[in-house]
């Protein structure tokens, strides 16, 4: 049974992948087991977050919620996103208009013979 997938330039073989997983997993485990901070003592003041002596806020408040993740990416592409938001009006008539528009363009391309 041949498990190798030829993709044109490269290939993929699960057994090879497993072999590499074992090798690199072994190396990672070795690195992890070898070192470690000897000064780390769980259950002391040391493991608490440092916020300049202020009381620690409730866990609900420190959770990074979905809207905060990639805020910068969306902000950086604000021009693009304002266009994309405008395109998705949610109005059923616009759905039909997009369909008609694309249909007209396709027909012009095909029948016009470009």
């Amino acid at each position: 049974m041949d498990l190798t997938l030829l993709t044109g330039y490269g290939f993929w073989n699960p057994l090879l992948w497993l072999a590499f997983l074992l090798i690199f997993g072994g190396i990672s485990y070795f690195l992890w087991a070898l070192r470690g901070n000897p000064a780390y003592k769980p259950g002391t003041e040391q493991v608490k977050p440092f916020i300049s002596g202020n009381p620690e806020p409730a866990k609900d408040l420190v959770h990074i919620r979905a809207r905060h993740i990639y805020w910068g990416f969306v902000e950086g592409l604000r021009g693009y996103y304002s266009f994309a938001r405008k395109m998705h009006t949610g109005d059923v008539r616009d759905y039909a208009l997009w369909y008609l528009g694309v249909g007209v363009v396709v027909l012009i391309l095909l029948v016009g013979g470009i």
């Binding site: 997009w98 396709v106 027909l107 029948v111």
Partner: peptide
């Protein structure tokens, strides 16, 4: 011929709409 191309264009657009290809993906 022109008629066949019109039929092809309509079928192409509609099935692209139904499989959710942009810019007709809103649904």
């Amino acid at each position: 011929s022109r008629l066949d191309l019109i039929a092809l264009g309509l079928l192409l657009t509609t099935f692209a709409l139904k499989c959710g290809a942009a810019p007709m993906h809103h649904w």
